[in-house]
Amino acid sequence: MSEEHRAGVEVADGRIVTAAAASTLRRRTARIIANALDTAGGTEWNADVAVEVRLTDAPLTVRRPDVVVYRADAINTSPIRAQHVLCVIELVSRVSQATGRIVGVHRYVRAGISHYWRIEWSATGVPIACTYVLDPASQAYHEEAICSGVVHVTEPFPVTIDLTRV
């Protein structure tokens, strides 16, 4: 399948799943996060929006998180392999709550992705970021930070992202 045709789909356990088109708010928020993480990651790490990540070969699972931080030397790899990924960020809407909070998280844990961020919007419209780090011993994500409006973290790199400017 061409890259253009793959843009709106993911593969979950070998089955093609159509992804809903992202809203303007979601796309802008993803771009702001990616730009900040791209700068913070220096020359070793890239951060981009809507990058295909191959989590497993059998059954085939390919996800397209809103933002992906991956090794800079893997830029020509398509799809990016999970072992090249440092962090995935999912922007959760009402439509994607189950995926962003449950399904995707378990797949990222199994793939060994070290950091997972979930961005949601409160009832008043304030963005809330929940950041998690993978504990290899328990094979589970542990909460690192919950930030309202402004994300300020030290992992995977020190960065401050003002999500209120969206």
Rank of each mutant, 00 (worst) to 15 (best):
P79V: 02
V11K: 05
E90G: 10
H5E: 14
Y70W: 12
V92F: 06
I128L: 03
T154F: 10
H84S: 04
A74P: 03
C130H: 15
L55Y: 12
R71T: 02
I32V: 07
R165C: 07
T164S: 01
D57Q: 13
A19F: 06
I80E: 10
V109Q: 10
N76W: 05
H115W: 09
T124P: 08
Y132F: 05
I16R: 14
T160H: 09
P156A: 09
T160M: 06
R71L: 05
T99P: 11
A137T: 09
E90L: 07
A145E: 13
F157D: 15
T56W: 10
H84F: 07
G41P: 07
L37Y: 05
V68K: 12
V166M: 13
Y132T: 06
V85G: 09
I113G: 08
A137D: 08
V151Y: 03
R54W: 04
H152V: 14
P59A: 08
V11W: 06
P127K: 03
E3C: 10
V53D: 01
I119C: 00
I113Y: 12
A30P: 13
D135T: 11
I146A: 06
Y108P: 01
R28F: 05
V11F: 07
S93Q: 06
V103T: 13
W121H: 02
V105D: 01
T39W: 14
V62P: 01
T43G: 04
A98F: 13
V109L: 04
A12L: 14
V69H: 08
A98M: 13
W45H: 01
F157C: 15
D38M: 00
W45R: 02
D73Q: 02
T61N: 14
V126K: 08
Q83M: 05
V62L: 09
S138K: 06
S78Q: 12
I113E: 08
G14Q: 10
A123Y: 05
I119N: 01
A36F: 11
